[in-house]
Design a protein around this nucleic acid. Structure first.
Lengths: 203, 203, 203, 203
DNA sequence: CATGAATGAGGATTCATTCAT
DNA sequence: GATGAATGAATCCTCATTCAT
């Protein structure tokens, strides 16, 4: 929003600067958390003075919000990718190993957790997160519906929503699980995820 | 640890004081988060001076740590309860509806999220959390093993650990899910959880 | 207001601390102005940490406001003093030399100017100042009325208000005059003030 | 001074640029005060980049100083106007209603107050202000002297200086008075000003 | 044991000023 | 000439922690 409100002489460069800040923020946030990361830390990481950041973001919360927004876009992209597969249900099952492995990478889990924790306090963040979740659910539901029909399975909304939410819950639980038990055996977990997800998708 | 190091004239009262602080902390943490809750807020809620808290806890982190420790005890108790059932696997499935409903209550999910987020930055907290998780896993594994044997199912450790971690992941994902989608349909979710868990337990 | 809202264990000492801050503020404000004086400067002058000041005042504006409030009380006291004289008009004329000399003292004029300038921007301060002015006018008008009647002069409100405001304007102009022309001849000014004020009081 | 020191390619345009800045400054200063008005605000109002202002003014203080200087020129012009009247004392009395009404206009009083307050802290500004005051006094004194002689009244310098300073004090008090009591009755005040000024001029 | 007054380091934010383009 | 991106010092304020009483 800042970028559209504040007039910048060279919007190209402005966007690049914003990116610089967001990248630095990603690094600092995952190292120290949203509140633990100081503007000074972010500015140093971004190779930019602290004051200058305020030419691109109204305040620290705006950085967090923009950062969260960028992050949720990624999930949405993943959904769109899934949507284009011939047999999306099967594609989803095949995606499991990679997804699980990704989510068990220490550098991956910290940020989702920060975002979730923050949104349970900061209403503005909560709004962004929930809106993104709604869009994701819509996409996911469409995918499920098409996939289930393809396999001749029942596809009423209430049922599918329950299945969907259970599946999302499993993936959203991964960062938490990884935090509590960092050296868990990924392969065995993947096998179990496949069992559970197949049950949810194909029964 | 504080309680064992610091000499208190009346250990009875000291423990009661600690409880006062921990209860207050629970309230404040879930209201404002670990970092949002100030010692002043906690001390006022505990009906005790800020300075006095330091007679029972070395610092704010120690409160968080002790608080987390208390919290994990609850899970452990649940495990012990499960352990005493005739058919623990069946008991677990039957527990699902209540567990899920509990975890979808806003007052329930905030603290687990705070704890997880905090432990992904604070090594001290991470240590407490992981130790607790290890103990829980041991209990859970024993339960699973006994249950599976009872049902004549394979019970080798690697397999069971994968199943177990998948199940825990599902429950740990609930607070995250609830944050992202506060008005999700609990009943449909419960049905799906039962499908997934049955698959993990009995196949 | 702070002092009544925030609970202090020893209200006696709290008031003394507030006074310490206000005295330091007076010194700093007159040296550097309201905005030029930093909280650090004030706290150092008050012999107290910057943070501690916030136990007695909500913020810097509250210090300014309290300070202004204290200041306007002094004028009110002067009015009450005048009110008790046998021939208040005559007493007022006799007060002129001292009043003028006081207002020409460099340490005296800076603060009234700061207060006036601040109140033309800060609505909260404007409110305090205007309320004080209203009370002062009421007292002054009563004095004038009684005095004029004593001397058998017309005493209708509209007329007296005009005279009163002219007289107050003269005294409020002194700090401005002194700033613009610090080495002006006080005695000649006093003589002229007496001429003007006599005309306003007795014609 | 800046304008004479810094070499400008087109001095004509340079002066116009300075005027642009000074007009913008007038607007911003009266809206937000000297310290409240940021260089960014002034530059935007002036339709010029912030950096460019520094080609015409050494720093913000120089803007204030130049601005003050321009302001005092206006008073000087008024003096010259008065000087050309047949009976300047009478002319002065006749000017009172308009002058008083002007000074009671909110847009008029803010800047004099800012200037005065600023000059009581900023020695550079004080210097400009006092120098201007000295010149004004000289003009005023000459006018008074001529007028008094015209009316066959005593005209020794000490006496006239006192009268003059009393009169200036009255007018300089008006912005202060207006701030403290914004809804005062202008007409009654004018009548009283005439009484006081006549006494100072003709006795 | 208990208080809360007091500290001071650290945080977000603003803004006059500079300088490469 | 003219821009506005960039700096960094300075400001207000918060809060964990200490300590005299």
């Amino acid at each position: 929003m800042s970028i559209t409100e504040k007039r910048h002489h060279d919007p190209e460069k402005a966007l690049q600067r914003r990116r610089q800040v967001l990248d630095a923020a990603a690094e600092c946030f995952s190292r120290s958390g949203f509140h633990g990361a100081s503007m000074a830390e972010i500015s140093k990481t971004a190779g930019m003075s602290a004051g200058h950041i305020y030419n691109y973001f109204d305040n620290k919360d705006a950085i967090i919000a923009a950062f969260v927004e960028e992050n949720v876009e990624r999930v949405s992209a993943m959904m769109r990718d899934l949507q284009m597969q011939a047999d999306p249900l099967q594609a989803l099952v095949e995606k499991i190993p990679q997804s699980v492995r990704d989510d068990l990478d220490p550098r991956t889990w910290i940020l989702p957790l920060e975002i979730t924790a923050e949104s349970s306090r900061n209403p503005k963040i909560a709004c962004v997160v929930r809106d993104a979740d709604r869009r994701t659910r819509e996409q996911f539901l469409a995918i499920l519906k098409a996939g289930r029909r393809l396999h001749g399975l029942p596809d009423d909304d209430a049922l599918l929503e329950g299945r969907m939410n259970a599946m999302i819950t499993m993936f959203q639980g991964l960062p938490v699980r990884a935090t509590h038990c960092p050296d868990l055996d990924a392969e065995q977990l993947i096998a179990s995820f496949q069992i559970a997800l197949r049950a949810l998708l194909f029964s």
